[in-house]
Nucleic acid binder design. Structure first.
Lengths: 214, 214, 214, 214
DNA sequence: CTCTAATCGAGACGGTACGTCGCGTCTTACG
DNA sequence: CGTAAGACGCGACGTACCGTCTCGATTAGAG
């Protein structure tokens, strides 16, 4: 969407971007065919992301990989970026619903362990998401959710703005996880990774600001 | 396809594919015309980056903005990404040669102040570089240089690998600076920014590992 | 052109139809490559018109037949109809410059004979143009030129408007020629065809109105 | 491709390809729902033809205009061209059954007057049919019927083949009527139009060949 | 007066062509 | 040689219609 509108700087400011699909997206509707296509597209995207970064993936490839016609792609997502966002949000949702409760019940220590464990259990997928072409989408999505959570949890005031604190926390977590996943398979155990996360992330948060978040 | 795939890998692959001109690139050659074209292209790139992200900038635009013929662009840079890398490396070099000596002479505290001061003095340019389309190129270039510096300075061993420590440090610096530059003009003074940098970055480095770097 | 603009009834009334080509068309410029492409496209169009009507011919086919890239087609002609118009106008020009002088010098009788002779000598081409998909373009182009000629020659006033007379004349000529060309090769000699033309066309013109034209 | 090519040939090939419904077409069946849909489609087609040529009318538009579902269209007509043929044949039938008897009883003079009167009384409809996108379908349908009538009436032999004579007659009539309908509303009276028809058409037929027809 | 069968509304889908855009190569002519 | 000028091959883009194909809801007219 962004791309299209931006590209047309010349003239043409007023095409209403009329997509084939009438209202929003047929995704997650009741039609079994639509559901199947949607799933196939997500799966195809993930499969391709294992092999190359997003910009090298064409919509045509995704469709072909999904065994779906090219035009059908656009009946589900306006751009490949949108599909990626969907996939990212999807995966992050799962992660959050698994680790957030732990944070509340058992504290940040256990939470980091849960996080590392979950990522380790889906190592291949998360390697794709964090070190492949999806990285920046993941980062953005994570940040979006974290900001929401941080806002809700009304953290103790500090001289460091919450927004910035959140950015730093998310950034550190992402960088550490990415680095971990880039290492040879079992170079660092889950416990070690959790420990590093704990130390690096919380040390930034020594002021107390970030504890609510992480 | 070949070209495209080669171009994309992360940044900085500097594909040495045989381009039109036999002798690599006319950049930094002695021909006064070539020098002028090269400068014009860099300047044009910076000017355009202030207005839109990299992917929305076309080679034709850069050439036009530089007052240079389209084909001439390729006699200087294989792709627009390469040009951006050049520009980024250029700017980072200036920054490093200004702030590194301060670190050695006056310590990390003064160093962060020098860094913040320099960025503030070129606020518009660095806003472009860090929050615009050049962001990931800048991050990559900064990381590349930092890893080199970190390797040279043989930091105290620690349970946190140097590579990871460097990544986290650079990441934090970049995130903090980006956030700062996104704030309304004078929301935070240079001193305040330097202080935040100091606290957040060094707190991660409490173990002593990172001090050598930052 | 027509098609495009008309198709977009929905919204989108304001795309300026910005074609790749900056000004008009590269056709008939001095660049030898452009000239070659232009010729190849015309020839390809004629070859395809021998096999099927215009609506069944796709731009992709024309380009392929011409050994030219698809996008290159649009650098020469906005639509396939425009290409056809070019070809038609081209051929009609040749016909007119051959038969008009005869009309002035030797009268309508000889003129019809010249017309029939010329068409017979390029039987295959004109069969294509008059009985294939190009028919309506040819008719339109012929009419356009005839109206111009008729207007210049200031025909004797009559109770039948000149415009209508011209339409009828052109229509009859086209129908007769088309029918003739559809007949088995040598069913009617050139002289016979000319005689039929003469009788049918001029009989409509008995009032004197049409003589100036035909 | 197969479908497309088959559909196009001139008009009226009436491809009997196996369509969705097993029993050919629900048209003209006894089911009141089917009858209503059929009528709605014809009416919608006519309404749309007043606004734009056939090629710019989409099946979806026709269906929408008729207040009928898109897929329902195909349960009645294989293509929009087929629908147009139906409509054209329909209208021409009415015209023929009104004017042919007059020809037999009162001669060609009265016949032309009847023709012009009928067309004038349905001026809007026939303007659509003759000067809009339906023109070539009308011409073809008229020719088809005329050839049949001409064959039946076994015209006096002449040096001009009956087939050609018929073509010319139909062509002249169509051209004259089209021209008449394009003129401002009451520029020419019905009587004047009939007179022009009479003179131009019959003058071609001075040999007597065409009288039987027209 | 049901019950079976055709008709319809709704819309996803595979498919083909469209016209546009940007890339990077190349050719020609100039200074 | 470096440049201007620009045609070209290439390939992805997103759009538009096509005609086919499930699916339920109705709604006829035969039993």
């Amino acid at each position: 969407m962004k791309k299209k509108q931006a590209r047309q700087t010349q003239a043409r400011l007023c095409d209403t971007m009329a997509h084939t699909s009438p209202s929003e997206a047929p995704s997650s509707l009741t039609d079994p065919r639509a559901i199947k296509s949607g799933q196939a597209l997500r799966a195809a995207m993930l499969r391709l992301l294992e092999r190359k970064p997003l910009e090298q993936i064409t919509v045509r490839e995704i469709a072909a990989e999904a065994g779906v016609h090219y035009a059908t792609f656009f009946r589900h997502h306006p751009t490949k970026e949108a599909l990626l966002d969907d996939v990212a949000a999807d995966q992050i949702d799962r992660l959050v619903t698994l680790t957030l409760p732990v944070l509340d019940e058992a504290g940040s220590d256990a939470s980091f362990l849960a996080l590392a464990t979950y990522v380790d259990e889906h190592r291949s997928l998360w390697t794709t998401l964090l070190t492949g072409g999806a990285a920046s989408a993941m980062r953005a999505e994570l940040l979006r959710i974290s900001q929401r959570v941080a806002a809700e949890r009304a953290p103790t005031e500090s001289y460091i703005p919450v927004e910035l604190a959140t950015i730093c926390t998310v950034s550190l977590i992402v960088e550490i996880l990415s680095w971990w996943l880039r290492q040879p398979a079992e170079a660092l155990s889950v416990a070690q990774a959790a420990r590093i996360l704990h130390r690096l992330v919380l040390s930034s948060a020594i002021t107390g600001t970030l504890e609510a978040l992480a």
